[in-house]
């Protein structure tokens, strides 16, 4: 062919940044500015740290959910799983407290991580080996885990042993150089998640499985393995959230983590991850979790709208975010 078309522009170094990728962070900034305009107290560092700390659970779980969704799956069971893992952890700690003293907390945390990953593995194996829709599988396990925690608490409350409270308390209420531990833990989880998803071959393969499972399979990617591992990562993240959560209330109840799955999915979707898979935005998911918590906080601080309507505003946000995405991406 003659020189009808010329080729190859120079490659720009580094990643291209698209406006759409920045949208969740722009939205976060806008909401913070609005919050500041509505109530002076909002921008106090004490309040901001408080908000960020409270959003830690959803943010940590949302990092795992980003993996699951990017790989082409969905997990509705995270809220119930969180409660179940919390219950197991408390029972383990309480049982070991007389023998191990404060070390029982570490044993409990270790147990929580293992149980969380096993729960994720269970979801993943049924989805991939059983070839059942993730929606159905995790709808089922959502009910199962919820029933287990209700059974374990006997419908009431399952508190941690008095002797462990003092030692465990700082994990939620303590801070390092003024930054609360939950924020630091979230940061660690996010950095790890972003590294895994963007900088490793594993992350590339996981995303390709979600983008088009056939292409991935034809390219020699173990699609089932990738999807299963995403659920295991989700279970790990749920366990980490549970470890941070236990000292906050000091007990597990049948309503622990209820409806968190919706908040988590909302955070992930607001953050720019596509529900159909193939793109994961770890930092976006965290921004999404912050947006949800900030909206709740601003509504509580202001008298404009009743705080009973928080869920309605959060629900509206996800729809608005999707509409904005539709109009920016279809040009």
């Amino acid at each position: 062919m003659t020189a009808t078309t010329t080729t190859v522009a120079a490659v720009k170094e580094g990643r291209r940044i698209r406006l759409g990728d920045l949208a969740p962070f722009i939205a976060l900034a806008v909401i913070i500015v609005l919050g500041a305009l509505i109530n002076q107290n909002f921008v106090s560092s004490a309040n901001l740290l408080n908000v960020a700390t409270r959003s830690a659970f959803i943010a940590i779980i949302a990092v795992g959910a980003t993996f699951v969704i990017a790989s082409g799956g969905l997990d509705l069971s995270v809220g119930s799983m969180m409660a179940f893992v919390t219950g197991i952890m408390i029972m383990t700690m309480n049982a070991l407290a007389p023998a191990l003293g404060d070390w029982a907390i570490l044993a409990g945390a270790g147990t929580a991580l293992i149980v969380g990953m096993l729960c994720g593995l269970f979801n993943g194996v049924i989805v991939t080996v059983g070839r059942i829709e993730p929606f159905i599988v995790t709808l089922g396990t959502m009910g199962i885990f919820r029933a287990f925690i209700t059974f374990m608490t006997d419908g009431g409350s399952l508190p941690i042993d008095r002797s462990l409270r003092e030692a465990y308390r700082p994990v939620y209420f303590g801070d390092f150089l003024g930054i609360p531990y939950p924020i630091l833990i979230t940061l660690a989880v996010v950095l790890l998640g972003a590294f895994l998803l963007y900088r490793t071959k594993y992350g590339r393969r996981l995303t390709s499985a979600g983008s088009n499972a056939d292409v991935a399979r034809f390219s020699g990617v173990n699609v089932g393995g990738m999807r299963t591992s995403a659920y295991v990562i989700q279970g790990f993240c749920v366990a980490v959230a549970a470890i941070c959560y236990v000292p906050r209330l000091g007990a597990a109840t049948p309503t622990t983590g209820q409806l968190w799955e919706l908040q988590v999915i909302t955070a992930v979707v607001i953050g720019g991850t596509l529900l159909r898979g193939g793109k994961g935005r770890v930092w976006g998911s965290v921004a999404g979790a912050l947006i949800l918590e900030i909206i709740a906080n601003v509504m509580v601080l202001s008298d404009l709208v009743s705080e009973y309507l928080v869920a309605a505003v959060q629900g509206a946000i996800i729809i608005i975010a999707m509409l904005a995405h539709r109009f920016t991406s279809s040009r």
Binding site: S211, N212, D214, V215, F218, G278
Partner: peptide, 11 residues
């Protein structure tokens, strides 16, 4: 099937 099984069109 280059679009369905060959290439990740969004990548």
């Amino acid at each position: 099937d280059r679009k369905g099984k060959g290439l990740l069109l969004d990548e």
